[in-house]
Each structure stands twice: as C-alpha cells, then as structure tokens.
Nucleic acid binder design. Structure first.
Lengths: 338, 338
DNA sequence: CTGAAAGCGCTAACAG
DNA sequence: CTGTTAGCGCTTTCAG
C-alpha cells in the first residue's frame, strides 16, 4: 500500500538523495560505480519517481496539454493520434481535453492546464477571440491547431482551407456543373470562413456569379448539415451540385438525400471536405478533400518542441496542403478502385 | 512570468496560509468575513492553486486516468465522450492514453498513471493477463472497460457480447440464410471470444452445424477484415451471409466486396457489430449490433466514483445490452427511414 | 564527484 | 474559528 520514495533508494544504495536524483536525471557527473549501485537499488525496490513532486520542484514538466474542440468529430481523432505518437516518441505524455465547442469548458480546461503546469499547450480554439492571457503570462507556450485566433501571434499549424475548397469547387466546375451550392461551417471559425472563401474564389475564377440563395451556413455538426440540405432540396430551385464544408455535415446531407430519394450524382453532385476511412464505402463513394490530419498533429508537436527549446525563436506558421480524392459522388470517371 | 501562490493570497488577505487553504477546500469552519476577504484576494491576484503541490500533499487527486487500446477505433470515441462528460460533471479531469494494442505502451502508461497518482484508472486492457500489481499495491482503484482480464477481480462494465452476436446471427438465420460465416476479432480478448461464442450459440440453437471453413479469425483492424473477406470470396464455396465482429473489420469487408463486385445482400448478406453514425449511409445501409458506447463510458465513471467513496464495497460487474439495428445489408424489409 | 540543506506550494494535525 | 508547525517527494545550490 506504499510506494518507495527516493529516500528509500538512497538509503538502500547508501548514497545521498542528491546522488539518486542525479542518476535519475542522467547527470553525467556521477561515478560509474555509484550509478550502477543506485540503478540496482531502483530496480530492486521497484521505485517510480513521483511526478507530482518532481513537477513541483523542477518547474519543467513532461506533460503536454491537448485541447480539442470536438472529439465527436472524427477529423480530430487522427490528429490526436499524430500528437500522441510524436509526444510518445519524445518521452512526453499528453493530457487530452475536449471542449465540445463550449467556451466555458474551454476556459475551465485552460485553468486546469495552467494549474497542471503543463510544458506546453496545443489547442484548436472554439472561438477566435481568446487571448490566452493567463497561460502566456505564466510562460506556457501555446500552439494553435487547425484554427487560428485574431487576437495574438503564435506558432500555428493549419490546413490550406482556401486551397482545399477551391480544389473541390473547381472539380465541380470542370465537370460542367452550374448552380453549385455550398453548405458551410461556422463563420466565426477560420476554417469555416476560409472554406467559404475558397468556394467564392473558385466560382470567381471561372467567371461564375455568386448566388446567395445557393449558400447555407451552419455549424459543422451532422444535424446542421441535415437541416441545411433539407432546405436546399425543398427549395424551388435546388442546386445541381453541393460542396459541403466538413465530414459531419456531409453525413447529414447524405442522409437527407437518401431519405428523399435524391440520387447522387445524377440529381445532385456532392463534394465533401474531409476524407474519412469510410468515405469509399459510402453511398455513393464520396469525392472529398483529404486533409493530412495525422501530419497536422505531428507538426504541432514539432513546433512545440522547437518553442520549448528556444522561447525566443521567431513565430512560425505551418500550412499543410490538402488534396482532392476523386470517387463517384460527382459523376467523374467511375474507377474500379478507390 | 510568475504566478501568485497561496502565500501571496494569505499575505494579501492578511490571514494565515491555513485559512486560505480552508477556503479553497470549502472547509465550513471559516468565518464568513474572512472567507469573502480571501475570495476577494484570490480574484484580485488571479490566483490558481498549483495542482502538483496539492497532489503531492493531499494524496487525493481529481485526475482520472483513461487508458484505451485503440483510439483509431471509432467505437472508443463515444466511450471517451461518456467518460469525459461524467468526469466533468463530477469535477474531475481525465487524462487519456492510447496504447494502440501494444502491451509495451500499456506498461509504460500504467507507470505514468502510477507516478501521476491518479485518483483512479479506467482501462480497456490490450491483453487478458495483466494483473496491474503495482497500481493495486498503491491502492489506485481500477475499472475494466469493455474487456475483462482473467487475472483478477475488479469492477468492470462491459457489453453483452454473446447476446449481441447471438442477436445478429439469429437475424440471419431467421431470414433463411444458410452457410453463415463469421469474421471474428482477436481471440485473446474477451470481446473477440464472446462474440464468437454468440455466433456458435445462435447456430446451435437453430440446429445448424458449425463449419470451421466458414470461420475466419483476425484482429479487429480494417486490414484484417479486408484480408479475411478476400479469403472468403476467393474460396470455392463462399458463405451466403457473414457476421463481422466489429466496425473496422466491417469496413474492410465492404471494401473487398465492392472491389470484387459482390452485391450486398443479393450475393452475400452482412451484419456488423458496432453501429456507427455513418452506418446508415453506407452502401448498402448496414444492419448492425448497436452498442451503448456513451453509457458504457458513463457507467465506468459511476463505478469508479463508488469505489472511491468506499474501497471495501463489493466488486460489481455491470453488463450493458446491445440491440440490433436492422437496415438493408441482410435483405430484410427495405425501410424508407433508417 | 558527492553530500547537506533549503525549499517548491500546499495540506493537516495540533494548539490556542 | 484561526494560526503555527511540520512535512509530502523531489531538485538544486553550495560547500566540501
């Protein structure tokens, strides 16, 4: 019922606590004999350093905070995985928190992270106007993941959303579609705004007019996609093709279309943003913008590590390029393989 | 760059550190005047208790460890969500670790949890023969999630896998299928074994023979489902219907069938285990055993809370019932809605 | 190269 | 009801 402490190890090895501590921290200035003796005692007693104590004393911790905004969204899973693997490879553990797009929860978790004295924080913020004042004051580095904020300058890694959306809509245009609609995500998030911008740009570049009636804005959730798509198909002049701004909304859209017997792509063509493991088994196999999610996660850790090593390094923003995966939901060439 | 400490608050409010501590911990024996004065100082200084210090001193922590075996598997996401929400409601934070079905990683994370002195641990173990000796020795309660181990008695919450599989296979039998095959998951996990048992039981109850050639065993991953399904359809006598033991393997199976132009359910009928948000948009909409994943997560927290309150409470095992969601992949009545 | 000693920020008896 | 006094387990000067 009781764990051995550093003192126990010291007693057992007949050295001072300082020496044990040095061995633990790979301090080179320890005689080889003592080192092995200490190591042996550690093994024998099954000693485990107490992290709470260590963190209290040495203000450095090896815990990395990861705050994501919606764990329900499969997009984040692969991201989490990337963060975790990278952290693991660098001997850090990660504490994952989910704000559920709730600013109140976000505030709370920010407090937790601060009180927890994490080494650094990776976050995809729920709102663009958070300034992370407390965390910054304490000197905890922050890396923005996927979404950015207006308020202040930080290291950030994100996807080229404008480019991705452009790619998707251009594909539709190239296939000859007109009346191309969009089901957009939260306009208060950079991702929502940028994908919308990509949509506009693509139409613009093709000399096509923007028709406000073909643009619906929601909140990146399945229900929102469902509701908006329903508005579309029950409207007098539904779009001939739709670009949907994320995977959840795409699911909602597919549901409505199926329920109303609308055929894809014969009646309405569809491109999604986010390529998921199941996208190729959907009905029909979905053409979608694929985001390098795993790399997104990895990259944030790299940025954090760099910032930890040099707090004065210039601020860096990394942008990852998405690519279009063509399947059957737009009526492009039918392919035998996905 | 420096955070106020409890001492700063004490000085500011002109009281002792003990009093501040009492206020912080809602100790009722503090005069109302002092309490407001302290609270005011806390607010003014923006004080945040240092968790590391608190945890070091009071061996009780409000951090709950959650170790899952495969974050890639969407099944766990909803579980995580359930755990998190319940924990949040009970003022606890959760640290999530992903072992990736790797016993070495699991060992490491168990150490981390111990060193971290978490209040309790919820885990879906990668292997059935882990005994959690160290954790138990330190007195950290453990709750088994979804999977169980042989080695020792603990509180556990899981799904009735036998019953779920039985339901699925019986459905196939009731529809008149013969030559019903199974693509099973890891036999060293209780979930894998039990779903297999349910399959056998259903055939048995119907007076049907078990044909070993119709049983393939894999490891719950997409690739495994892909490979096994391929073996099936390239075999001289493929099964007429298949029960697939989890969502990832179902995805792999669907992929093979699509690639080989096998029609579902006309050529081969399919039932999956795990109903996912996208199951109804698959090609064809999938009939599947739906597990109460969110509740699974919630329930583990309840069990943990109970154990924390009374370490001598009798060991409890909670079993949640799954249900069958009928769609189109088995050729049952076609329904307009999912 | 090693040990002694002084805390990190907080809580928990124990007196008053 | 409040303050004093010890530490929790570890790291880190500072002397030897």
């Amino acid at each position: 019922m009781t764990t051995p402490t550093l003192k126990d190890v010291a007693d057992h090895a007949q050295v001072s606590r300082a020496t044990v501590s040095r061995v633990l921290n790979n301090n080179p200035s320890v005689d080889e004999d003592l080192r092995v003796r200490v190591l042996e005692s550690i093994r024998l007693l099954g000693y485990q350093p107490n992290r709470a104590a260590r963190r209290l004393r040495a203000s450095s911790s090896d815990v990395l905070g990861l705050i994501i905004s919606d764990i329900e969204n499969p997009f984040f899973i692969s991201v989490v995985r990337g963060v975790e693997d990278s952290a693991y490879a660098n001997h850090m553990s990660v504490v994952l928190c989910n704000t559920d797009e709730d600013p109140v929860k976000q505030r709370m978790y920010l407090s937790v992270m601060q009180a927890e004295r994490v080494a650094g924080l990776i976050i995809s913020p729920t709102n663009a106007n958070e300034d992370f004042a407390e965390l910054r004051q304490v000197g905890i580095p922050i890396i923005l993941l996927d979404r950015r904020t207006d308020k202040f300058e930080t290291d950030a890694v994100s996807i080229d959303n404008v480019g991705g959306a452009y790619l998707a809509v251009k594909h539709l245009i190239d296939l000859g579609y007109e009346r191309i609609g969009m089901i957009g995500g939260s306009p208060h998030l950079t991702t929502g705004r940028e994908r919308y911008e990509g949509y506009r740009k693509a139409l613009h570049a093709a000399g096509m007019k923007i028709d406000e009636k073909l643009i619906k804005v929601g909140n990146f959730k399945t229900e929102s996609g469902y509701a908006l798509a329903k508005e579309f198909i029950t409207s007098p002049q539904p779009p001939r093709a739709i670009f949907v701004a994320n995977n959840l909304m795409t699911l909602g859209t597919l549901r409505v279309l199926r329920e109303h017997g609308v055929r894809v792509p014969q009646d309405i063509a569809l491109v999604g943003f986010d390529d998921m493991p199941w996208s190729s088994e959907l009905c029909p196999p979905l053409t979608a913008v694929s985001q390098p999610t795993y790399e997104l996660g990895q990259e944030t850790v790299q940025l954090l590590l760099r910032r930890l090593a040099d707090s004065d390094a210039p601020i860096r923003t990394v942008t990852l390029q998405p690519r279009l995966v063509i399947r059957e939901s737009c009526g492009a060439v039918l392919q035998s393989r996905s």
